[in-house]
């Protein structure tokens, strides 16, 4: 994959001017070294970086906060390690491969695109930005996602999700397309949910969903939201062999919280 970029360990300046991407070969770099170089590149003015031979290095994108809010576009070739884009502040990261656990942990803003699958704890406590996963993801996705004023995080998963999807969810939009065509079989979906919305293509049994959740079919307003994000999903993954119309022709299930205060009646005052 992308052997053209593999010259020697370290950083090579991109071709002419600021337009080309700087290149980092991660083959022999530890996590901290890789992130040192990413940060150096950002501070030296690079706005596009391609990292090749990534093999489990963690926290890519995490150490890129500056008070000036510099922004970069990062292409990751290989497998991104845990906590990809944790606390991410405005950058755009595309992974050409899979990502491990904790993608977008407490992410604030920016965009993450994974052309593969993601591990567990995807989008945990994410508060802003968008994450697109082409294939499926592991357990505990979208836990405690939240929204605030103009910030409304969006997570779109092309494949299926495992148990505990959207537990304690407090805001944002989660869309599970389940394009691999399996029946959605996760359990404990949305337990403790008190904000936001989950759209599942297809249907779900009441027994799969937490007590705090209302299940209803997606309505017209929901289909407008779905149309926007399904379009964006397909733009990012042209390799996905289906059309927006085909996806949207399926029934979608909407999961919303019954209350903003699921545990309000728990206490003796």
């Amino acid at each position: 994959m992308a052997k053209a970029f593999v010259l020697e360990p370290g950083v090579r300046a991109g071709p002419s001017g600021g337009m080309g991407a700087a290149v980092i070969d991660a083959a022999s770099l530890e996590t901290r070294e890789l992130n040192d170089r990413l940060r150096e590149l950002m501070l030296s003015g690079a706005r596009r970086v391609q990292i090749s031979n990534v093999c489990g290095q963690r926290y890519i994108g995490t150490r890129l906060y500056t008070p000036e809010r510099l922004k970069m576009e990062i292409e990751v070739l290989g497998t991104a390690g845990n906590d990809l884009a944790a606390f991410l502040s405005g950058h755009k990261i595309t992974v050409h491969g899979n990502a491990q656990d904790g993608v977008g942990n407490t992410m604030d803003s920016g965009e993450v695109i994974v052309r593969g699958r993601a591990g567990d704890v995807l989008g945990f406590s994410m508060r802003g930005g968008e994450i697109y996963i082409r294939d499926g993801c592991g357990y505990r996705a979208a836990l405690h996602m939240k929204e605030y004023q103009g910030k409304r995080p969006v997570l779109v998963v092309g494949g299926g999700c495992q148990d505990f999807l959207g537990e304690y969810m407090a805001g944002g939009v989660v869309i599970v397309l389940d394009l691999e065509g399996e029946i959605h079989d996760a359990s404990f979906i949305g337990t403790g949910m008190h904000g936001g919305v989950i759209y599942l293509r297809g249907t779900v049994e009441g027994s799969q969903v937490g007590d705090q959740v209302d299940i209803s079919p997606a309505e017209e307003a929901d289909m407008e939201v779905l149309e926007v994000y399904v379009s964006r999903f397909l733009e990012r993954f042209p390799e996905v062999e289906t059309t927006k119309e085909e996806i949207l022709a399926s029934p979608f299930t909407r999961l919303t919280p019954r209350s903003k205060r699921p545990y309000g009646g728990l206490y003796a005052y």
């Binding site: 505990r140 605030y148 537990e167 407090a170 805001g171 903003k260 205060r261």
Partner: peptide, 19 residues
């Protein structure tokens, strides 16, 4: 605004960190 959550919702801290 400080917690970055909607006004009037319960601010729920789960028992464990789920990560």
């Amino acid at each position: 605004e400080t917690r970055m959550i909607p006004q009037g919702t319960d601010a729920i801290s789960p028992a464990p960190h789920h990560d």
